[in-house]
Simulated scan of single mutants.
Amino acid sequence: MKIAIAGATGKLGMLVVDALLERGASPEQIIAIGRSEEKLAPLAARSVQVRIADYNAPATLIPALEGVDKLLLISSSEVGQRISQHENVIHAAKAVDVSLVAYTSIANALTGQMKLAAEHVATEQLLAASGLDYVLLRNGWYTENYTDQIMGYLNSGVILGCAGDGKISAAARADFAEAAAVVLLSQETQAGKIYELGADKAFTLTQLAGAVSAAGGHEVSYKEMDPETLADIYEQSGVPALFADILVDTDVRIREGALEVTSGQLAQLIGHAPTSLGKVIKNALDQ
C-alpha cells in the first residue's frame, strides 16, 4: 500500500510522515509530495520516496499520484486560492484511481460560519461530487497558532482579541498529524467518515493568557476589543486587510462556538490524551 502526503514539506506534512513511520509504516510505503526539491531532501534522506508537484500545476499532479492507494490532501496555505488548487489535486487523484482521499478540513466546517471555512466547505463539496472515496479530518485550531506568538504576548503583556469567553478546542499540530496517520494506516473502511477533531480540554483566550503568564513568569492578560478596532490594529501592524478580516471573523465565530469540539474523536484516534495547553506553551518557550 502506497500512502502519499500532498503538502509533505509543510509543518503538518512533516509531522504526518513522522507519525506514519512511528506507527509502523515503512519508508518505502510513503510518497512525500512537495514543490521544493530542497525541502523534500530531508525526507528523501530517510528513504521516503519524494515527488515534486504543485497544486497550481495540474500537469505535475498526475505523475506525482501514480500508483498511490491513499492520499492525504493537506489543505493549501494560500487562502483565496484553495478551491482551484484542491480541485486540481482531486482531479488528478480521480485520473489515477486513488482509492481513498483524506482531506484536512476545519472543525465544524458546516456550522461554524467562519469565513476561513468557506474554501474547506467548497473542497468537501468537490470531493463529494468527484466519485472518489474520501474521509474528512476536520481539524480544530492548532495550539501553535497562539504559541508561535508567545514572545509577543510576553513582551507586550497582552493578548488582544474579540472572542469573549468562547472556548477553543485547540490541539498540538503533532496530535492532528498522528490522527491523520492513524486514519491512513487503518485497516477499517474510512470512506465516508467525518472526524471532528479537537482537544478534550478547551480554553478561552483569558485562560490562554493565564497559562502563558504562569509558564513565562510575566503577567499577560487578555484584552477584549471590538472587531473594528482589532482589525485596524492588525492592519496598522502590517497584516493585509483580507487576513485581518479573517482573523477578526475567526475570533467573532470563536465567541459563538465555532472552534469548540466535543466529539472526543481526536483522543480516540490517537489512543491518548492530546497534548495539554501547558505542555505546548512549555515547548514553545524551550525552543
Score class of each variant (00 low, 15 high):
S75F: 05
H91K: 15
L72N: 00
N108S: 00
A109W: 05
H91C: 08
A109P: 10
H86P: 02
K94S: 15
I83C: 06
V96Q: 12
L72Q: 02
S76D: 04
Q85S: 06
N108V: 00
V96R: 14
A95S: 15
A95N: 13
H86T: 03
E87S: 13
Q85A: 13
L72K: 03
S76M: 03
S84V: 10
G80I: 02
I74N: 00
G80P: 00
S75H: 05
A93E: 13
A93W: 08
V98I: 14
V96C: 12
I83P: 01
S75T: 06
S77N: 09
S76Y: 03
L110Q: 15
A102D: 07
A109V: 12
R82K: 08
L110P: 12
N88L: 09
S84L: 10
A95M: 10
V101W: 05
L110E: 15
V89Q: 04
I83E: 09
G80C: 03
S105C: 08
I90W: 09
R82P: 04
T104G: 02
A102H: 04
A93V: 14
E78C: 01
S75N: 11
K94H: 13
L110G: 14
S76A: 04
G80Y: 00
I74W: 00
A102R: 07
E87L: 11
N88M: 09
L72H: 06
H91V: 14
R82D: 01
R82E: 08
V96D: 12
V89A: 15
S99W: 07
V89M: 14
L73H: 04
I83R: 10
N108C: 02
I90D: 06
S84F: 10
L72C: 01
A95E: 15
V98W: 05
Q85P: 06
V79Q: 04
Q85R: 07
V101T: 11
I83T: 12
Q85D: 07
H86V: 11
S84M: 10
S105W: 05
A93K: 10
Y103C: 10
